[in-house]
Design a protein around this nucleic acid. Structure first.
Lengths: 338, 338
DNA sequence: CTGTTAGCGCCTTCAA
DNA sequence: TTGAAGGCGCTAACAG
């Protein structure tokens, strides 16, 4: 059974108690614990032992009040997208190691109380030590650059943000690599299905087919809803069957790919024999499709870790450093669809 | 462009400023803002106007220090499961409406700093006003019941927790309803594929086939990893094809269902003509499978909302109420696999 | 109905 | 190297 010496904050030891027990002043105890200023080795040990014995934990509210800034890292998300959980876990992990907490804030147009302009004040209200923005909204990114003057602020994005600290996933390079891989596998008619927010992916595709001297087979589309995308994919898949010289490979989003696979199955097109399908994002379901989908993965945990590290660099080093853009590359997850 | 009158907590107005502006004592201002104690309508309005003008926001650190409890709702998750995001969103929504913040904590065996026994102190450290535990761990649930004496504490679970406040999803009833539905559709040989943590689902299945006088076709299994489950499903699907009198319907998890569909496709079994497939959980990918999967959905947003409401009931009403168990029923999402 | 007083627990001077 | 004093912003208890 898990037992603790306290069940609420009120049961926890305070500096004062430590000072009474050790016979030192509160101040000395405080400094010893934080390792600030001059403290003799002996006193330091004395204090640390007492603190450990009482399982002392500083009162964060008091710290925040006094220091005028809390030890919270605020993370702002603009979608409820599942992969974000990994990023959060990574940020959390880094935060804990440094004695920071993590506050999560969701922006969403769906809920009035979560609109960015009402949410941001709420975030600032907690006086966070730093801010991580996971978003594709220009408004939010601009605000991030502006806030950076006063508050360490790192964004997680798909394109580098000028003037701001950011971690970005090189989706363009990812798509390029995907086409390269398909090319090496002997595919020569590589199609691209466009979806919502696929600009960078498209760039990579276009650059690659040019570099490798391949024809451009571009299927436009701009749907946002996963299920609608899937249905569009289904129709696209059937469409391929009617083409005189159909593609022998497709690069597209995981959602679209799920529909394509269904469309191909319906028309007897064999994957990967007749056509290779290569997705994007490595969503949970990619491995569950039929056949399991080869796809480009975002290293989400890594992304979170890099963002947190960059943020702490600013928290430690002040706000005068040059903005940095950390590039994260995508990884190809090989499965049976290629 | 979004502009605020402050960029950090330090720029924000304080009670003292409000008191200077209005000519009232800090105390009066404070009471007027909180609506506590006697305040004349005139003063109240005066204060509220000034507060709005300066966009006053109470300093949460100071409040927490003084009140000895913060205005944070702590939520503890023991998996990174995607559906939890909806629950979080709902809890957050309720919290914001009441002026509370939400702190999210992940327990995970994968990361040492996230083990429950190190995490719980961290949670308590922030002196939360209440705690929501989303977990299937017995240790954690027991601790929840114990904590309840000191701290409002609601669990989100699959079985009611004796002695504790909880919101539970009636998975047993869900499975029962699923079989009932299949029965009404004329299916008479309804199989059940067991998976990790499917006890309640199994109970519902067994009860239903008994009530409707159907044969029990039980395929055991206890895998945990989604991809392995999917592969097992694929094999199960092929297995069905070899049976002298195969089932005409299956109830199982979404993961297993994804594999079954692949297995059926490989052996020429038609869904839903030859066999109906009915999943469980309505995961993101259910609608993306081929054919789109009929499945039982957990109303995650609803679950979160109920948990938050129950928690606030305790926060408002003290810790002496009788423990409550709120039952949430599952909903059948009809798609093309049945 | 309103004001005064006294801290909550911690950290930053400054003095010893 | 250590201690004493003061105050961060807010609220509870009490007095007017």
């Amino acid at each position: 059974m898990l037992t603790l010496r306290y069940q609420t904050r009120q049961d926890m030891a305070t500096l004062k108690e430590l000072s009474e027990i050790t016979g030192l002043s509160m101040n000395t105890v405080s400094r010893a614990l934080r390792g600030h200023g001059y403290i003799s080795e002996k006193t330091a040990r004395l204090v640390r032992d007492a603190a450990r014995r009482l399982d002392y934990r500083p009162n964060r509210a008091a710290q925040a009040l006094r220091r005028r800034t809390s030890s919270e890292i605020a993370v702002l998300l603009d979608t409820y997208d599942a992969p974000h959980l990994d990023k959060l876990a990574a940020i959390k992990e880094c935060a804990v190691q440094r004695g920071f907490t993590m506050g999560v804030y969701f922006t969403s147009e769906d809920y009035p109380s979560s609109a960015f302009r009402t949410l941001l004040p709420e975030v600032l209200e907690s006086a966070p030590a730093g801010l991580i923005l996971i978003t594709s909204s220009d408004t939010i990114l601009r605000k991030g650059v502006e806030l950076r003057k006063r508050l360490p602020c790192v964004t997680i994005v798909s394109d580098p943000v000028p003037g701001g600290d950011c971690v970005y996933v090189d989706r363009c390079q990812g798509a390029y690599d995907a086409v390269h891989y398909l090319f090496n596998k002997g595919r020569r008619r590589i199609a691209f299905c466009e979806t919502f927010q696929s600009e960078n992916r498209k760039k990579g595709y276009l650059k690659a087919i040019q570099d490798f001297g391949l024809p451009c087979i571009f299927i436009p589309g701009s749907l946002k809803n996963p299920v609608l995308i899937r249905n569009a994919g289904y129709l696209n898949g059937k469409l391929f069957a009617t083409m005189p010289t159909p593609p022998d490979a497709v690069q597209t989003s995981d959602y679209m790919a799920s529909g394509l696979l269904a469309g191909f199955a319906a028309t007897g097109i064999k994957v990967p024999q007749d056509i290779a399908v290569l997705g994007f994002d490595n969503r949970d379901f990619a491995a569950l499709l039929n056949p399991p989908l080869t796809t480009l993965a975002q290293p989400n945990f890594d992304i979170g870790k890099n963002a947190a590290n960059l943020l702490f660099k600013r928290i430690d080093g002040g706000l005068n450093g040059e903005p940095e853009a950390v590039r994260i590359s995508m990884a190809l997850m090989l499965r049976q669809s290629t």
